[in-house]
């Protein structure tokens, strides 16, 4: 097989989340619903999903292929797909979630797997390593199992190799390179080279007119009652904002030298007690 033509279909799964940049003082939860209050916060694409899309775009630039952005979310999640199209994904599909706002990870993986089977053949499915809201970090692994595909996590670079793909991923204190034969599922983490590109104005305008495939749960043939109820994998029984009070002591002194001296004394005092 020609190395350059190994990658044909890339599916990048993306998730729209509550903007994680909202300051802690503006953050509230509804304990009854076990949900964060949206308030005036924006909905944004999860950053690792954008890192995944950027990694996919760089792979396509070198080795070709077609990138489909896929999301399972509320109607508003269409905005995240428009942004993916503006970044130059080739196609976009939305599975509309009209049920539980935060289905459990197995329900999400089963839905994504059904949508991917509906899209058809795939060589590479890419996801963010975790989301900035619930940070579950399981969708990639569960999706790989649903699809019967191997999985590599914490990936930050992919290139075509002699006999498949060369996948680089981060470990605790370095990295590993894997030779992988598609089809394959990877979860993507960030590095300095996959910072998401800023879409051009012209592409943003064009993305508004591009078609987005929309499916209901029934369209993709999943057990919709189960998924709508949020799944039976796990249940969030409580969501609370922790109360944390630490008062910072600003070191005092008339000169910088005195202040730094106090700071140094505190450092030594603490490190000696460790």
């Amino acid at each position: 097989m020609d190395a350059k033509s190994i990658i044909v279909n890339i599916i990048v799964c993306i998730k729209q989340i509550l903007d994680p940049e909202i300051p802690a003082r503006d953050f509230r939860v509804e304990r009854e619903k076990k949900e964060a209050v949206r308030g005036s916060a924006n909905l944004v694409t999860n950053i690792f999903c954008e890192n995944a899309l950027e990694t996919a775009l760089q792979l396509r630039e070198k080795s070709g292929g077609k990138i489909t952005a896929l999301t399972f979310g509320a109607e508003e999640a269409e905005d995240a797909l428009r942004k993916a199209l503006a970044m130059k994904a080739d196609a976009a599909a939305l599975v509309v979630n009209d049920g539980h706002p935060h289905p459990d990870p197995l329900a999400v993986a089963q839905t994504l797997a059904a949508a991917i089977r509906k899209i058809g053949a795939f060589d590479l499915v890419m996801l963010g390593r975790e989301s900035g809201d619930w940070g579950v970090a399981q969708t990639g692994g569960l999706l790989a199992e649903e699809l019967g595909a191997p999985c590599v996590s914490f990936v930050d670079h992919i290139e075509a190799g002699d006999d498949g793909l060369i996948v680089k991923r981060q470990t605790e204190n370095g990295w590993e390179k894997l030779a992988a034969k598609p089809p394959l599922v990877v979860t993507v983490t960030n590095n300095e080279f996959n910072v998401p590109r800023i879409p051009k104005t012209r592409d943003i305008m064009m993305s508004a007119r591009q078609p987005i495939t929309k499916w209901t749960l029934e369209d993709i043939g999943v057990d919709s009652a189960q998924i709508r109820a949020g799944g039976d994998y796990y249940e969030v029984v409580d969501l609370a904002v922790p109360v944390k009070e630490v008062s910072c002591e600003f070191v005092s002194g008339d000169t910088l030298e005195q202040k730094v001296e106090k700071f140094a004394e505190r450092v030594i005092e603490i490190t000696r007690a460790l």
């Binding site: 953050f27 619930w134 940070g135 249940e235 969501l239």
Partner: peptide
Amino acid sequence: IRVKRSVYGGKAIATIELKR
């Protein structure tokens, strides 16, 4: 079995019951 985990970037703590 229940677990506690930090969510929303550490702004909240969730308690989760594993159903399987």
